[in-house]
């Protein structure tokens, strides 16, 4: 009896672990796309209305998806403190907050970090160029992430359960 309960628990645990992994694969392209559309909003704010960066960040944080909003919210708060912090430092603080619990990988985040080096320090055309670069890089990453997702989501969904089942069979 105990053996049976144990076996069920192993299978369920392994299955859930597999699903969590699969979920991360599925979430990554989605979050990348959300980030890209947030950058698109930033481009509009900068190129068309020349909104000041702190204000642009707060507005975007209200309009974009919740996960991405944390980044912009934090960066806006840092800039509005008027503690003499630069846009790069504020952006970095935003990324650090965002990186907790995100499905984005370190290499995805480095695209954003690179963008931070040029935010707010040059004229409109230059800002737009840097934003386009980051958006292009995100776009390429989205494609790759989608491929990986189609391969891995199913794989991990099954592999978890099957792995659990195998462990059970071996031990039983």
């Amino acid at each position: 009896m105990f053996k049976l309960i144990g076996a069920v628990m192993v299978i369920v645990a392994a299955g859930l672990a597999g699903m969590a992994l699969a979920n991360a694969y599925a979430r990554r392209p989605k979050e990348l796309r959300q980030m890209r559309s947030a950058l698109q909003m930033l481009e509009t704010e900068i190129a068309y209305t020349a909104t000041l960066l702190p204000d642009a960040f707060s507005q975007i944080s209200l309009r974009c998806e919740q996960a991405v909003a944390r980044l912009f919210d934090r960066a806006a708060a840092e800039l509005k403190k008027m503690s003499g912090c630069t846009a790069r430092e504020a952006w970095e603080a935003g990324i650090n907050e965002y990186s907790v619990g995100t499905a984005l990988t370190e290499s995805d985040l480095s695209i954003l970090r690179n963008l931070g080096n040029s935010l707010g320090v040059s004229d409109q055309t230059d800002q737009v160029k840097h934003l386009h670069l980051a958006m292009e890089q995100l776009k390429a990453t989205v494609e790759k992430a989608e491929e990986e997702a189609t391969r891995n989501v199913k794989l991990w969904n099954y592999l978890g359960f099957l792995g659990g089942l195998m462990v059970v069979l071996i031990l039983y």
Partner: peptide
């Protein structure tokens, strides 16, 4: 100079053309 520019421009040099 970098830091001064950032603070006086509100980190938004592009808005000050």
């Amino acid at each position: 100079i970098d830091r001064l520019v950032q603070v006086i421009s509100n980190s938004s040099l592009y808005a000050l053309e």
